[in-house]
């Protein structure tokens, strides 16, 4: 069982909701990411989603775009991100880490090469925004041969037949994009999220997490009631963007708030 699956199994046993937290590697400086990851775990994050900076992050809203741009000022690469996970693993063997990014850096490294290096570094999952089901087969083969979960997105526009196929290829958990739009958008509609989660939940035993548009404890709680967990990103990246000084503490405080609220459910 993968580290991600183990974590979700444990959360289920404990009756708790998963808190998945996203920051961009190297944002705003290289040195701050590792301590922030440890701090997030300390404050109750269950899964770390590490953004791999890309020059053209097409699915990101303005906040996360800026995070990518800040990291790219220091040329933070996919290779650097694998090295960072290896460093994180020196003191933390239990918290799952998944990489989130875009296809091209992985293409450039080569699928087989990437999967081998990622497994060696201690990466547990990969979410590639622009590799939908139709284009992912050869990468998936490499990932599964190294027991790395491929995390798929489901969207409000995903039809049920397609969702069923996606669920068959997915592992770890499924990530429901709560709204039509980019990360950090502000028009979360809880009722429509509920309807879709009920429809998709019936198709699979995989845990379902909801992201895009969750900005605080209140919105996290609303959505978490309907799912197995929530993904928080833009609000953390915004906190990172305020400067590396005290960044782990600022992010830690946001995470703590959300964790406490989730544990009241």
């Amino acid at each position: 069982m993968s580290r991600i699956s183990q974590q979700f199994a444990q959360l289920k046993t404990d009756g708790r909701k998963a808190l998945v937290a996203y920051i961009v590697n190297g944002d705003p400086v290289r040195e701050v990411t590792l301590p922030t990851m440890h701090k997030m775990v300390e404050e109750g994050v269950d899964v770390i989603e590490l953004g791999v900076p890309f020059s053209d992050p097409m699915a990101e809203g303005p906040v996360i775009q800026k995070g990518h741009e800040r990291a790219l000022e220091h040329h933070v690469s996919l290779t650097d991100s694998l090295a960072l996970v290896a460093e994180f693993r020196q003191t933390n063997q239990h918290t799952p880490v998944l990489l989130m990014g875009y296809a091209n850096p992985v293409e450039r490294m080569g699928y087989a090469n990437f999967a081998a290096k990622a497994a060696e570094a201690g990466v547990d999952g990969l979410l590639t925004v622009d590799l939908p089901l139709e284009e992912v087969e050869s990468l998936n083969r490499e990932l599964s041969s190294h027991d790395i979960d491929n995390i798929f997105l489901l969207a409000p526009t995903t039809r049920v037949e397609r969702a069923r196929k996606i669920a068959e290829h997915a592992s770890g958990f499924l990530y429901y994009v709560s709204l039509k739009g980019v990360t950090g958008a502000g028009h979360l509609d809880v009722e429509s999220v509920q309807a879709k989660l009920e429809e998709f939940g019936a198709l699979t035993d995989l845990p379902m997490c909801v992201g895009f548009g969750i900005k605080d404890a209140a919105s996290a709680v609303k959505v978490a009631r309907l799912a197995d967990g929530v993904v928080v990103g833009s609000v953390l990246v915004e906190a990172m963007g305020q400067g590396s000084e005290q960044a782990p503490e600022r992010v830690g405080a946001i995470v703590r708030d959300i964790r406490q609220a989730l544990d009241q459910i």
Binding site: D130, E134, V177
Partner: peptide, 20 residues
């Protein structure tokens, strides 16, 4: 049928746009 010219082309977009 899937939009490929040899290894090129295809449909590399986020899930939200697939239906459109």
């Amino acid at each position: 049928k899937s939009g490929h010219f040899g290894i090129f082309g295809g449909r590399f977009v986020s899930e939200t746009l697939i239906y459109a």
